[in-house]
Structure formats: structure tokens, C-alpha cells
């Protein structure tokens, strides 16, 4: 007899546990405000990344087309996987030979966004931008030149 009681208890306990689960899913079905979907391409305007989001490395230029890079190469040294190549040139300003930035090459395809380059840069010349749509048709487009055409280092001008 106890066996039958146990059996019936089993059946009702099982049904009850199933009903508890169904209550949860049922709750979400009738509460559409719990939906968390973000419709991505439509919400481009309102979608804003956090300030510290590491999208891609950029070199800010001011309105006079000046950047802060002194071509010291510390970022290149600190980069764990060679995503940064700093190519410098030597120019003579006021009779002094000076090391200047020629091309700052950044390989987005190799970057692991570890933030070491930005943190170690002594002159805060580079920073991460909050862009995130990096898809391109050709891999070579991911290799970027960060300093703009004919730009100069702002420190060189002052001296």
C-alpha cells in the first residue's frame, strides 16, 4: 500500500516540478517588456560604446594636423605580437639632426587589444577609439597608417 502512495506522490511531485518550470517560461512569454534583444543595425545611432572600449588604435591629430608621437618606439617594443611598426626618419631642424615619425603602421588584424601600447606611451600620442565595425573585404585593408599625410609632431614645432 505504501508503495502505491509513494508512486502517486512521485507522479504528483514530478508534475509539480514541471509546472514550476513552465511558470517561469510562461511569465516571460506574457511579459514582452523583459525582451532584451538589441536590433543592431537599426540602433546604430543610439548605440554608444563605453569610453574605455578598445576598438582600434588611433593617433589623434589636432586641427593644425599635428600629432604627439615622437617616434620613440616604446609602443612597438611593448606590443606583444608586433602589431605596431614605427618607421622614423631623420630630419635636420635648426642645424640639429632630429628623429621624426615617418609612418606609424598599425596591424588591426594582429592586435589583441591588451592596451600596453597606450599605457606605456610617454607622450600620450595614441589612444583607442570606440569604433567596432571592422569588417572589410580584403585583409590588407586592416593594415593602417595612423599618422595623416604631412602631419608633424607638435613637440617639434614648439622647439
Amino acid at each position: 500500500m505504501t508503495g502505491i502512495v509513494e508512486y502517486i506522490k512521485d507522479v504528483f511531485g514530478a508534475l509539480k516540478s514541471l509546472w514550476t518550470g513552465m511558470k517561469v517560461t510562461g511569465y516571460y512569454f506574457v511579459h514582452p517588456k523583459e525582451i532584451v534583444t538589441e536590433q543592431y543595425p537599426e540602433n546604430r545611432e543610439t548605440l554608444k560604446m563605453f569610453d574605455r572600449f578598445k576598438g582600434e588604435l588611433t593617433m589623434p591629430h589636432n586641427e593644425k594636423n599635428e600629432h604627439k608621437c615622437t617616434s620613440c618606439g616604446i609602443c612597438e617594443m611593448n606590443c606583444p605580437n608586433g602589431s605596431i611598426e614605427v618607421i622614423s626618419k631623420f630630419e635636420t631642424i635648426d642645424g640639429k639632426k632630429k628623429k621624426m615619425l615617418d609612418t606609424y603602421i598599425y596591424h588591426l588584424e594582429m592586435c589583441t587589444f591588451c592596451d600596453l601600447c597606450v599605457k606605456t606611451c610617454p607622450s600620450s600620442a595614441i589612444e583607442f577609439a570606440q569604433t567596432f565595425e571592422h569588417a572589410v573585404w580584403d585583409r590588407s585593408e586592416l593594415t593602417k597608417k595612423l599618422n595623416k599625410q604631412d602631419s608633424v609632431c607638435s613637440k617639434d614645432i614648439k622647439e
Partner: peptide
């Protein structure tokens, strides 16, 4: 994570 570290999965 993203707000403080800038990374979501791999924070470094």
C-alpha cells in the same frame, strides 16, 4: 567589465 576595463571577455 567593459565600462572599467574596456574588454568584455578578455579584459587584460
Amino acid at each position: 567589465f567593459e565600462q572599467t576595463t574596456g574588454g568584455r571577455l578578455l579584459q587584460s
